[in-house]
Design a protein around this nucleic acid. Structure first.
Lengths: 100, 100
DNA sequence: CGGCTATATATCTCGATAGATATATAACCG
DNA sequence: CGGTTATATATCTATCGAGATATATAGCCG
């Protein structure tokens, strides 16, 4: 599963949002989400395989953290579109200023 | 279907990429992609419903163009993550410069 | 009108995904 | 060791998404 599919799922985006605050044990995600522990574990596995998070063991806990490399790939696709959009907005503004 | 799910599909990303070049008839997308005409039509419908493209009729053709409003929602989610990433890269660079 | 072109919709099938419950693994603690 | 906690895996089910083929709609042209 690629990064685009990975971030298409709301629970997974929420996990990534939590990890913006720094490294966190899997249990934190289970608490924060409204789905079962195994479901969270499965999402974490997908995020790992998509290269969006890293894990390290800490006793019986697993500490997850962001691995932003693959998110950058999303941005690489998205950026030209945002630029296209900004260009159109700029053109619109210029037009409006022409006839105020 | 929201914008995140919409851009998760490669054929749909390719359609959006084509439309960066400006308004285009549905037939152009059918030519460019390797899937059937009805499959393309279905993707176009999804993109319309997701608010990512607009259509207008031109005789028997339908002209599609980008509607970037919803893509901005993706950026809104993505941007803080990219900033998190940049902060870490900057920290790494600073560290490397410390010991050259 | 009749045929042709462009596009959309209907229907079906297959594979993938998300979830749940049950169970396994494995580290810690007494 | 035995129990407890934290997390992962197995299995099953229901739903969904993407594709194909077949068909409908609708505008154009002679």
């Amino acid at each position: 599963m690629d990064a685009f599919e990975a971030i298409a799922e709301p629970n997974r985006r929420q996990i990534l949002d939590l990890l913006k605050g720094g490294e966190r044990p899997a249990g934190d995600m289970v608490e924060a989400l409204t789905i079962s522990q195994p479901a969270v574990s499965k999402h974490l596995k997908l995020l790992r395989e998509a290269g969006l998070v890293r894990v390290r063991a800490d006793g019986q806990r697993r500490l997850y953290s962001l691995e932003p490399r693959e998110l950058a790939a999303v941005e690489t696709w998205l950026r030209p579109h945002l630029e296209f959009w900004r260009a159109r907005l700029d053109a619109l503004e210029a037009h409006l200023e022409q006839e105020p």
